[in-house]
Write a protein that binds this DNA or RNA. Structure first.
Lengths: 233, 233
DNA sequence: CAGATCACTGATGTATGCAATACTCGCCTC
DNA sequence: GAGGCGAGTATTGCATACATCAGTGATCTG
């Protein structure tokens, strides 16, 4: 009997078991704590009902991700990315996603292409119904599917890291609200996919980079350092 | 009195004070421990004369860098990159350095260009005298100078991370031994610098990527998974 | 003799106590 | 009244003890 039960609930990693790191990251990205807010270890320990040790591990990681700042012997504080850093990160995003598009074009026919196609179709439908929430989700999925389909695990790791730093969700949600950008975005996705299908690695990379650059400009135009206050430091 | 002393030895970060993390990383990259070797926390703690806690922090970081593998409740082991991962990392290196070359070309005249020029001159001299050690050092410097000159701190961070994973020094030293590759390499550096000077961002990126690709092929041709044994896992 | 079970071992995972120190606020001095 | 000084406080940094559990080998059973 026990063998069966272990076989069933053996791998709880797949479905909804957020790591402490993810929980703390979610708290920081949640926006409740403004940049400069102190994040006491003891408070977090009590909040998540664990000891300071695992909290410290998570905070150390978040520091390496650039989300918080640990000032030795002083405290840890939520860190707001400067406008310059956001520009830098979008430059990297452009490079990563361009690289992914190029690699994917070289791979030839893979099932992920169908996933991307379905994504585009659904995006059109969501745009029709002005379902911005669903649309933002689909944009997110499109980019991630592209990255994963490039079949380069190290790229995925670096991309994940970058996206954690960008706190992407908050930004893309803002952008998507703007009418007009939606259709342009889907069209660009469509063009990229066509070039990938045509095995035009160079064109796919180039188009994807232009697409990311355009969306970055959108985000950056109506976002002045995201909260006004510049550096904490 | 105390004020003066604190002013003097306040910032020991600049000159030669290797962090525990760097020390442990050096130990792992030193090659003494073959892939699969266990890295007991208590052993490292005794070796470096600290407690397990800071050792754990360093190991956690090295795990995220991909140098070691922490199997929960089992132990931590040195992890050898598979050939596939090395290929993936070189693809990223190509992307990063290409991006750097392109960004630098857009920056216009900056003092770093002179540093690169001097590097090329010195490389020629080192090649003349068959000083492979110095030559390898200069190659390393050239690439790092390029990355830093791109003026994108996030790029520097990701590049650093990638280089830590690649354990670059061991590989590039092997490559540089090969006669013939030296002159080709310097010539490629020269071409890249010329294109940067000409503000040809596209050409600079393209040339740099080809250069990295060529050197990657060199490294990969005479390196079969670096040690024979494939995955530990 | 083959197979499974179970206690043992060694490792990591966590909790907690103590040490060190940057910042703060009140007090003292000029 | 202004400025510096010093004790207090809150925080992180480190050390250590305990809990937990994967792997292993001996033992027991069929």
């Amino acid at each position: 009997m026990q063998q069966l039960s272990t076989l069933v609930d053996d791998d709880p990693r797949d479905l909804a078991e957020p790591t402490l790191l993810e929980k703390v990251r979610g708290l920081v990205l949640g926006g409740e704590y403004l940049p400069g807010s102190p994040l006491s270890e003891v408070f977090l320990a009590q909040h998540f009902e664990v000891s300071r040790t695992p909290i410290r591990e998570a905070l150390k990681q978040l520091q390496h991700e650039g989300l918080i700042e640990i000032r030795p012997k002083v405290g840890t504080f939520v860190r707001e990315a400067t406008r310059r850093e956001i520009v830098e990160m979008f430059q990297l995003k452009e490079s990563f996603e361009g690289m992914a598009a190029g690699l994917l074009a070289r791979r030839g026919m893979v099932p992920e292409l169908d996933v991307l196609q379905r994504n585009i179709n659904e995006s059109d439908a969501a745009a029709e119904h002005d379902d911005t929430a669903r649309y933002a989700e689909l944009v997110h999925e499109f980019h991630w599917t592209l990255i994963r389909a490039a079949d380069n695990t190290k790229l995925v790791e670096h991309y994940q890291r970058l996206m954690n730093q960008l706190a992407y969700h908050r930004l893309v949600l803002k952008t998507v609200e703007r009418p007009g950008r939606i259709h342009a975005s889907t069209d660009e996705h469509r063009t990229v996919l066509e070039m990938i299908r045509a095995k035009d690695a160079f064109g796919a990379e180039s188009t994807m980079r232009n697409h990311v650059y355009a969306s970055a400009r959108e985000v950056l135009t109506d976002t002045r350092t995201t909260h006004g206050q510049d550096q904490v430091h």
